[in-house]
Amino acid sequence: MESSVISVPVGAAAAKRAGYLRAYYGSTVGKKQVMAVTGVIMVLFVIGHMIGNLQVYLGAESLNHYAELLRALGHGGLIWVVRGLLLAAVVLHIWSATALTLGSWAARPIGYRHRQRWIESTYASRTMRWGGPILLLFIIYHLLHFTTGTLHGDFVTGDVYHNVVAGFSIWWVSAIYIFAQLVLGLHLYHGAWSMLQTLGLSHASYDRLRAGLAIFVAFVVAAANISIPLAVLTGVVS
């Protein structure tokens, strides 16, 4: 209550001292926008990854060839560039999310006694802070399972098709993947809309499109990815 109106350094000299980007990231809006930009990177990756995954339906040769291609592009360098970019995105996304979440929790030290009425917020928007950490755990499991093979049990380096079929033949492995994709769908449903809002990309003429895009991306990504363990379990892919 004792705080008074601050004076933000806005002149060029002051800005040089503080650093434009530092001042930007120091603000809550800046952090949130970093989350949105890293969110865009991750969403584009997830869409690309989904398209790659769907090649399992073209047979063993297609999928394995595609996997080989990814490893070979740019003399084997591109995959490391993309991995580096994604790692940076995940780290920044989580760092910002954590900082903002702690700030928000501190902003209401005494809560309401009567249950708060939610009117326009959605189940998806209210579970972002559950979905994020669950996705992090899933990403770690997924890498140890299909990338390094550590948690696989029947891993054949280079035979991606075999690894997928053998992996998803175990029902609880499939269950983990299906659950994670449902969580991803939910995170994307709010996330895709939210990131456009956070980046200021709203306009009366395409606001309806914005909502539609979020549903579309979330549904297509979750449904396409879930179809694969289901296809293995039902014997469609074997």
Binding site: E120, S121, T198
Partner: peptide, 13 residues
């Protein structure tokens, strides 16, 4: 930010 408000996550309530 200085006043200690929380951070918008676009809930729209």
């Amino acid at each position: 930010d200085l006043e200690g408000f929380g951070n918008c996550t676009n809930h729209r309530d």
